[in-house]
Amino acid sequence: MTAATETPDTPVERTREPAPQQKQQWNRPAVTRLLRYAVMLAFALFFLIPMYVLLVTSFKPLAEATSAQAWNLPNPATWTVDTWSSVWGQLAPSLWNSVVLAVPAVLISSVLGSLNGFVMAKWRFPGSDVVFTLFLFGMFIPYQAVMIPLRQMMTDAGLMADGGSLFPLILAHAVFGIPICTLIFRNYYAGIPTTLIEAARVDGAGLIRTYASVMLPNSAPAFAVTIIWQFTSVWNDFLFAVFLTNTENAPVTVALNNVAGSMVAPYNEQMAAALLASLPTLLVYIFLGRFFMRGLMAGALKG
């Protein structure tokens, strides 16, 4: 209705129809609206500035990727994709590692989360609330608190040797993804009418058949949320990755930190690498943002 918040003194209309709000925008003082847009635009710039730097620098040849010309657009005569192909060469193996890592980790925690969510929403057992809360604690802990023993455990099992696999990291992400997936599915299943389940039970369906015939066919939106949310977390994780992998199976965040964090890499390479490593999650965010949003809100325990 109005941006009274920026200009507390502005008198605003006091009578208001609940609907259609579009019309009202035209009634209120244009100045306020303009001001509100200006402030919103200024904030948008603040959020986009790093993006601008990433983009323009990544297309500059080495000679122009200096601090003095940092804010300039790439020279139309000399701009190049060479940097991109160079960092692609450096990051491709680790990008692939991240894919190999994310797919099973995301699927395992989503499937387990779905089963748990079903039980904790619709087929409770004594103490299931407490179990659920104990699960949730696992989602908030600083993972440092388990990292040294976890690494030790994997080493003892012979999984951390040179040329080792991504298995330890997949396992860790799958397990530590269970709480948030359980939470998302539990909140989602809570909205499915209990009468449907009772009807299935009256028909003699047991737990598994009820899940398979009533819950699973209705689960697609919740799976979309957990898959997208978990994919983003696993892809962007650095802490587990740095503790549980060797150089040869490092996922993309670790490789990116090695490429760009060496401080000797030229700026154009650093920026292109950072952008390349972020592209998958950015694309997911842009095209499937509403599922990402639901995961975000679930993370705050708000359904």
């Binding site: 959020f47 892809w235 994780d237 965040t253 990116l256 490593a277 972020s278 950015l282 965010y285």
Partner: peptide, 12 residues
């Protein structure tokens, strides 16, 4: 726009 940084890793 305001929320997109959430989709980027802390490393980037």
């Amino acid at each position: 726009v305001y929320l997109f940084p959430m989709a980027v890793s802390f490393i980037a």
